[in-house]
Amino acid sequence: MTSLGALALLVATVLTVLWVLDLVRRGRLYVGYGIVLLVLLGSVAGVTTLAPVRRFVGLGLDALYPAEPLAVVGISAVVLLLIYVLHQLSILSDRVARLTQEIALRNSRDKGPGDL
């Protein structure tokens, strides 16, 4: 990977990290998914920018060859799709939680508040 390519990938990773953080902040992505994605993106940034890490990963995989452009595009698409799916799942989960809370509150109201 060229220096320019590594830089571009790093910038894209940082932007994705910021996007993930914003989704978590707004409650649009469950914080647990956020942690997994941040670890994943941090790994990408580490492997992209740090030659020793790249060598270590390559040795670990026993397959030290440059990623082909299509593989980068494919992996990026998978990561973006993963974020999107988890985002939608988190929204659904949040709606279910709010609905469950509302049902609990309405049913409790029927009995009257604080009957100590």
Partner: peptide
């Protein structure tokens, strides 16, 4: 016990229970 109860139909976790 006859105590006022707000029942979650499924487990939402401690944070959500406090929020309820």
């Amino acid at each position: 016990l006859g105590v006022a109860t707000a029942t979650h139909l499924c487990n939402l976790g401690y944070g959500r229970a406090i929020q309820t």
